[in-house]
Design a protein around this nucleic acid. Structure first.
Lengths: 337, 337
DNA sequence: TGAGCCTCGGCAATCGATTTCCGAGTTGCG
DNA sequence: CGCAACTCGGAAATCGATTGCCGAGGCTCA
């Protein structure tokens, strides 16, 4: 083992000027060959490519970005990569762009509005061609969304901030909740297993929409509102057991909450789906890991990715629009067939 | 709702020249105020800051990067964000850098060596100050790792490519496997529940190391090698049941495999931990979602993040080193107490 | 043959910020 | 008082690539 590689001072990177010198042409010609912006005579082209490969030339994207004002990059801001739904969105957006010449760079805002603000400035400062973001917070992220939209093409994903006229791509929560309602109507005797809702308190438009729809379909049914996480699902179980429920059909606003609910029900000796039925929302991969497998509504993450790609590829600026994609119902064993 | 915001042509961004003009000073002065690279008289400084905030000036990081050759950015390459262990590493690295002035940008290579190569060039072209990567493949990623290391500070995470003298930060797999061995020796009658290994075939140093250690601790015990995913765990169960096992202690090379194993064991009517004990490795959050909860070895992702931060902050180039962090044993209910 | 057009290489300006160098003004000290 | 040292603002070069413009050479066509 030598320790050479890591120690060596990086020998000043090769530039177009070096390639030009070696090939005996001007930098302009090198640039035209590399970026294929104008045809160059075969002989010179080959000389340039030869010199470039001899020297191991790689284009400096910073120089290019400065001159062109564009970067072939889209910046994605997500609140938390430890949340399987968000990381899945990130993965599928990356996949959607894999074939294009555009890179997706991801930044985690760690659920913090200030970090989110910094992230937006960072992406704008880097001259990304588009900002795609899942806003941390319905209200407090509004300024960041506006700031991005005013500087470049901006798309909100999954959640919308209030009062901003900025593109949105997400799931049709009403359609999703209707699928759940129909499933319950068809398979559950709500006299025996009354319907309950466990959702999230604040901050996200998706949470609001799902709760609102539930409330319309099942007026007067109780709801428990907390956070979008596993721990809250567990806690909610304690609360509803305290309220005296021994059987119920629990509609959760997100899979991660539903998984917490199932875990705690088991821990406290209750049976799923015999006594309690649990239905999630999101369709994250981990829903398969649950036992019993989770009945849920799967958000079409692939299609969301493709939709964003289309929106960004579509060159000329369009009036802002909200694109809602209809989700699928995924029956599992946490509710009856 | 107006459709103005999204349609408006971005009104050419504000530059230092604009700020300088408004404040009645030179761009040099503006630069010195903004980047605090040299003291500036109070009156001018205030004039500059006033003008900057009036105009909504934000520094153009591309221009800065071109001139400085540094970017206060580290690029992280991960194989697949849909894998909870990788996304967790990404999240914790982001968290570790949250307080520093450096941004972490993440790129998913989608498990493809070619995309990984592109990602490395992309980061290098953007002049990141450091590349941190979980290589896709032990052998085929070697060229990309070398390329990065030769251009800038590079750190491999979790997996090492063969034959490269490049920093590495990861889990001490030997120590982790020893914890598992001790747990088995103390709690399992291996006559009744013979030990089996379900691991991954190819491609990752971690996989190799874990398998090798298992093989040393339990010579002659059978092993099933496939992929690092849920589906392989399920498939492995079919194989080992076919081989006639009705009771066993199954050591899995990763939690995600272990979860597949548990799911399929349940599906085929076997009991965990009564008949089969299952032990994972990684300690991803979803291990808690399993029922029974998974016994596993938790990789210290927070500490890995902090270690990378330290390595990158430590300015002057050091000889490459392999830093291995000792993991914790996390008892769950998939094996006896 | 000559005017007009086309092709294509090179010069030099340019993108936005940083930084070196210079010089004017001030202070310190013997 | 005079010289050195110091402070601090501005002019201009610089980072690396792209691109508008110019002009040389080759072609067509009348």
């Amino acid at each position: 083992m030598t320790k050479a590689v890591q120690n060596a001072t990086p020998p000043r990177a090769v530039t177009m000027a070096d390639v030009a010198a070696r090939a005996g042409v001007s930098v302009a010609t090198v640039s035209r060959v590399i970026s294929q912006s104008r045809p160059v005579a075969k002989s010179l082209r080959e000389a340039v490519l030869g010199a470039a490969s001899d020297l191991g030339y790689q284009v400096n994207l910073v120089g290019r970005a400065l001159r062109k004002g564009r970067t072939a990059t889209v910046g994605l801001l997500v609140p938390d990569l430890d949340n399987p739904f968000f990381s899945s969105v990130a993965q599928h957006l990356s996949t959607a762009f894999e074939g294009s010449a555009t890179d997706v760079l991801i930044f985690s805002t760690c659920g913090d509005v200030d970090v989110e603000r910094r992230g937006v400035e960072s992406f704008l400062g880097r001259q990304v061609d588009a900002v795609v973001m899942i806003p941390c917070h319905e209200v407090e992220s509004a300024a960041s969304v506006q700031r991005a939209a005013q500087a470049t093409l901006t798309i909100q994903l999954d959640r919308q901030v209030v009062d901003a006229d900025v593109h949105f791509v997400g799931c049709d929560n009403d359609a999703g909740m209707s699928l759940i309602t129909r499933h319950i109507e068809e398979h559950v005797d709500t006299e025996v297993q009354p319907v309950l809702y466990v959702g999230a308190q604040a901050g996200s438009s998706s949470g609001h929409e799902r709760f609102k729809h539930f409330h319309e379909d099942f007026p007067d049914r109780p709801s428990y509102l907390g956070e979008f996480d596993f721990g809250w699902g567990q806690e909610a179980v304690d609360l509803l057991l305290e309220d005296g429920y021994t059987k119920a059909t629990i509609v959760a606003a997100a899979d991660i909450i539903a998984l917490g609910i199932i875990a705690r029900l088991h821990a406290r000796g209750h049976r799923v789906p015999d006594d309690f039925r649990v239905i999630g929302f999101d369709g994250v991969g981990v829903a398969r890991f649950a036992h019993p497998t989770l009945t849920t509504v799967r958000q079409p993450v692939e299609e969301i990715g493709r939709t964003v790609l289309d929106l960004i590829s579509a060159e000329h600026t369009q009036p802002s629009q909200a694109l809602r994609i209809v989700p699928d119902f995924v029956p599992g064993h946490s509710s009856p067939d």
